[in-house]
Design a protein around this nucleic acid. Structure first.
Lengths: 128, 128
DNA sequence: TACTTATATACTCATATAAGTATATATACT
DNA sequence: AGTATATATACTTATATGAGTATATAAGTA
């Protein structure tokens, strides 16, 4: 991923780099799972850990990348930091939509989405 | 890109890896340009070099990757080897389509497409 | 058969990336 | 103020990746 800061993307100068960076994001399974989850529901870090079964630093680091290039935004609510999609451009939404439309081909994603319907229950299980 | 051979994809077992590999393909500007070109027209290697201005080994190596994971197929016609898209699954076509729908955001791609309308003229310019 | 041309591949190097483990930070709670 | 908890980051290591240059291959042509 090119080392580009959020401010850059806010100015929206280089759409092409932004597009290839978006695809680089999607080329990692963990990040793809995170984005598809957030496409359905605003979630906190430990809910994402619980749902995906991945470690907290792993999830956090990927979220940091997504945040850096402006694809998600975070917001604290009491003890938790919730993440939400931040897709200003239609292309990106459209691409995620294509995946969701074919969700039956992707059991991992489908199962994640099922689990995120009861995301709250992962809040407790987060205690280490 | 995971080191997976064409035979694997033909069996279509792991759709998820295939999907992330597809995104990894698109995350490189040169490969993205190639795919968008081939989305419009069957082209030979030296036409693609001419249109994109990239070196022959660079284009060839990227084509090899695309071929290995089954996204393109090649076919010799006299002296030239022509490449063509080989997208069996709708998701991938759909994603390329989204990009083409927003082509005005991507001047490089737009210019490539313009040039590929007179691709033949790059056949001659190929001589080194 | 020798020569040219189109394309593919090998080799090298520099850089990027992901993951794990440990630790820092920041807010909440007592 | 001190402790627990949620999340972020630093550090390390192993691996992957892309580009350039040189060279190999394979078909076409003289």
């Amino acid at each position: 991923m090119s080392d580009i800061k959020p401010e850059f993307y806010e100015r929206k100068i280089d759409f092409m780099n932004k597009l290839t960076d978006f695809f680089k994001v999607l080329s990692d399974e963990t990040r793809l799972r995170i984005l598809i989850l957030l496409y359905h529901k605003k979630l906190c870090v430990c809910e994402m850990c619980g749902i995906t079964g991945e470690s907290q630093p792993k999830i956090s680091k990927h979220l940091a990348k997504l945040r850096d290039i402006g694809l998600v935004k975070d917001e604290r609510q009491e003890q938790f930091i919730f993440y939400d999609l931040n897709l200003n451009e239609q292309v990106y939404k459209g691409i995620l939509e294509k995946i969701v439309d074919n969700i039956n081909d992707y059991p991992v994603l489908k199962s994640d989405i099922e689990k995120c319907k009861h995301a709250e229950k992962y809040l407790e299980s987060c205690r280490r």
